[in-house]
């Protein structure tokens, strides 16, 4: 901790709390990848890391740098906005690809396509 030597006590403790909560939530989310049984259940797990985990760690970073540099350092908001907008896109694409693959293989675990057009993937 060479660079953070001037951080006041309250900011250091609050940053520690934020970072620990964020890392723990992210770990639980990734643990879900191991514990959940099928792909459709596993797809729910990483959203823990991309919502509360990310926001908490970024909040710690914002607090730490804002106090250190004595001015608002908020460029972490960019990462938050970016991740919030992109994660749903990747997860939805992934689930639709998985559903399409399962349907073409005739799996009975997924709801069947109601019309033949559903089997043709969207362009």
């Amino acid at each position: 901790m060479n660079a953070a030597g001037t951080l006041p006590a309250w900011a250091a403790l609050l940053t520690a709390l934020f970072v620990l909560i964020g890392a723990a939530v992210t770990l639980i989310g990734s643990l879900g990848l191991l514990r959940l049984g099928t792909f459709y259940k596993r797809v729910h797990a990483p959203t823990l890391g991309t919502t509360l985990g990310m926001v908490s760690i970024l909040a710690g970073s914002v607090l730490c740098f804002s106090v250190l540099e004595a001015r608002p350092v908020v460029h972490e908001i960019l990462i938050a906005v970016f991740v919030t907008l992109t994660t749903p896109v990747t997860l939805m694409l992934l689930v639709r690809a998985a559903l399409y693959r399962d349907r073409t293989e005739g799996s009975t675990d997924v709801p069947a396509a109601e019309v033949a057009e559903d089997l043709i993937p969207p362009a």
């Binding site: 729910h44 959203t47 919030t84 907008l85 994660t87 749903p88 997860l91 939805m92």
Partner: peptide
Amino acid sequence: LSVIITSTPGTIWVSYD
């Protein structure tokens, strides 16, 4: 709505007819 549903843990938007 799709962004809200998917980024909430526990629910995911699969497809819309």
